[in-house]
C-alpha cells in the first residue's frame, strides 16, 4: 500500500507492507525501514520503533488526511493520502475554488462592516475577529460583490469557517 505524505519541507512516498502484529516494512526511496508500530491508546499515542530507534509519537487529526504529528517535542503538520485519495484529490483541485471569505483564526466576530450588494476591493477590510485579547482584521482575498453574510456579530467561529459568501464570477 502506497501513501503520499506532504510535509512542510519535503514530500514522501511511503510504500508500506503490513507484516501483522504492528510490524511493517516501509520502503522510502531506495531504503527499506523495519518498523514496529503500536497504538498506546485510542487518542493517537504511538510507541514506534524504526530500525530499533525509539520514538514516542502523538497524532491529532485535523481531518482524516491532515495530521498534527508530535515527535520529541517538535510538531509537524502532515497531509497523508493513499493512492485512491490522491487521485480523487487531483480531480477536486481541478475544480474552481468557492468565492468566499473565511475566518483566518478561530474567535469571536467583533464586527462585520459589509452587507449584501457591497462591492469589495481586494484587501478591503470587512470585519474584525477577536480571540484571547488579540484582534485580527478580516480582509477580502480578492474583489467581488457580497452575496451573503453568513455570521453575526458576537458569534464564535472556527478557523476556516465561511464568514461571507461572494457572488461568483459567473454572476457578473
Amino acid at each position: 500500500m502506497k501513501y503520499f505524505v506532504k510535509m512542510a519541507h519535503a514530500d514522501f512516498e511511503v510504500d508500506l507492507t503490513d507484516l501483522g502484529n504492528g510490524h511493517y516494512s516501509l520502503k522510502i526511496g531506495d531504503r527499506v525501514i523495519e518498523a514496529d508500530f503500536h497504538a498506546v491508546d485510542a487518542h493517537g499515542q504511538y510507541a514506534c520503533l524504526l530500525d530499533g530507534r525509539s520514538y514516542a509519537a502523538s497524532i491529532a487529526e485535523q481531518d482524516s488526511q491532515t495530521l498534527d504529528v508530535t515527535i520529541g517535542g517538535e510538531s509537524f503538520s502532515a497531509h497523508a493520502q493513499d493512492e485512491r485519495e490522491r487521485t480523487a484529490g487531483e480531480l477536486a483541485t481541478a475544480r474552481p475554488v468557492a468565492e468566499v471569505i473565511k475566518a483566518s483564526m478561530p474567535g469571536i466576530v467583533v464586527s462585520l462592516t459589509v452587507s449584501p450588494g457591497d462591492v469589495l476591493q481586494e484587501g478591503q477590510a470587512v470585519g474584525i475577529l477577536e480571540a484571547m485579547k488579540m484582534q485580527n482584521e478580516v480582509s477580502a482575498p480578492h474583489g467581488g460583490v457580497v452575496a451573503e453574510v453568513m455570521v453575526e456579530t458576537g458569534q464564535a467561529v472556527d478557523s476556516g469557517q465561511v464568514l461571507i459568501r461572494l457572488e461568483s464570477a459567473s454572476d457578473e
Partner: peptide, 15 residues
C-alpha cells in the same frame, strides 16, 4: 524528525 513524522503519519493512516 520530519521523515520520522511522515512515516508515522503513513502508518497511522494505515492503522
Amino acid at each position: 524528525f520530519e521523515e520520522v513524522a511522515a512515516l508515522v503519519a503513513a502508518m497511522h493512516r494505515h492503522h
